[in-house]
Amino acid sequence: MEETKYMNPYIAGVLLGLLLLATIYITGRGLGASGAIKSGTIAVVQSIAPEHTQKAKFYREYSQEHQGSPLMNWLVFEVVGVVIGAFLSGLVSNRLALKFEKGPRTTTKIRIAGALIGGILWGIGSQLGRGCTSGAALSGLAVMSTGGIITMFAIFAGAYMFAYFFRKMWI
């Protein structure tokens, strides 16, 4: 069967905007993603090296701010929802398939390295910037946070700044 076409971006935008508005109205906070990865990382380190997490400053500061298991976290539940929602959407639109995507002129090895390094950079950058495209840029824009909007511009400025050097990976 043929894949269905993607939704009109403006309609998708309005829907996403209304969802974000509802999220802020109900919970007093916006959407997010990288926070769940942070919680996941901390949970893994806690179970592997509990002594280490009691000593190292990053984990101590985290457990001062958060009580209970790091996985009992709003964003962790939300991201589990994202997995379910995206899966269902893919199912409905015939897009479920194990697939490895890369640019037309690049090798599999380079794409694997790129995905891994890109992920690492996001891991570091989202901690430093206190949020990613969802938590800092999008939610920050909605609540007109100065910091969130600065992060948003920095993300897009950075991407355009470096895009030229990595063009062979994509076009």
């Binding site: 890109g118 950058g125 948003m152 991407a159 895009a163």
Partner: peptide, 13 residues
Amino acid sequence: GGLIMGLGFVIGG
């Protein structure tokens, strides 16, 4: 942090 994420965007996709 934003610039690092931007770099990560074009490398990681």
